[in-house]
Design a protein around this nucleic acid. Structure first.
Lengths: 150, 150
DNA sequence: CCTTGTTAGTTACAAAAGTAACTAACAACA
DNA sequence: TGTTGTTAGTTACTTTTGTAACTAACAAGG
């Protein structure tokens, strides 16, 4: 844990990357994401952004790409690509908005709604498993702390 | 926090993406990484993997790419590219190992060592600031929890 | 109408990362 | 020595992401 710089005796470098918070955050995020991504990747061939867009549509009802982009803080090009992918998977339809022909109303189709419900259940199960693993107190504490870091 | 699926009354969907742990983890990790990356990106034009490789060399003294790859859990192609970039920046040299001519001994040059020390200080400062922000207890708790999630 | 400026969304291009296949060197053993 | 298998590291190819430029539509003021 504690060691000096290779040869120079001048620096007292009591620093380990493996206990550096941004590093730990990244490792943990990657590990969790790898595990959960199986749910949308293996069964639906979805990417993370697609699952997020699908979620927002399922959660909030019809929205425009702009609204998703704003509410989910996803860049508009990522949303644009995710929408196209979801459209090709027949998970949603788009209809040009009558009051503003620049924007499109995005709606989940039946298969999209089904995927949404299935993935929500999977997410809830995942969260429950995590909670069992960490204990309810710690799981909640973790969420609070992470929220403060955003 | 609590809402039903758009119109179908059958599903009780008490689930918010914004309190889903993998999502929070990702948001927090990205936010922190964005902030700290300025340190190695703006001043040295380094990528995250390059900073990690530099760190391991500074921390453990001369190593081979394979050793870095193993000890840091970074895929060998990423290490390979990072090593080349660091070499082009004149931060390290490579010498073919005499006892195994497949592998190369990587050594930090003076500018690399300086960058290492500077970035370690920056990381320590960053960690200290985070600790002030969260409080020592919570900062430590966070690290412990993140460690359990890897 | 006709500018000027803004907005929704797409496309094109460049940067980064993952995967697989490759080269060169080693090791072990018939 | 020749064969077979393994390892260190690189390269080629593909996928994903980021950035900038673009198109079409709107809005406000002259």
């Amino acid at each position: 844990m504690v060691r000096k710089l290779a040869d120079a005796g001048e620096t007292d470098d009591f620093f380990e990357l493996s206990s550096f918070t941004p590093y730990l955050l990244n490792q943990a995020a990657e590990a969790q994401s790898d595990v959960f991504s199986k749910n949308y990747r293996d069964r639906y061939g979805m990417l993370r952004t697609e699952w997020r867009v699908l979620f927002h549509l399922g959660r909030h009802g019809d929205m425009s790409a702009k609204e998703i982009s704003d509410s989910a803080s996803i860049h508009k090009t990522k949303v644009s690509r995710a929408v196209r992918a979801l459209e090709e998977k027949r998970f949603l339809t788009r209809v040009t908005s009558p009051e503003d022909r620049r924007s499109e109303r995005l709606s989940l189709r039946a298969p999209g709604q089904e995927a949404f419900r299935h993935l929500c259940r999977a997410a809830q199960d995942y969260e429950a498993a995590l909670e069992r693993r960490l204990g309810q107190r710690d799981a909640r504490k973790l969420r609070v702390l992470l929220d403060r870091l955003r």
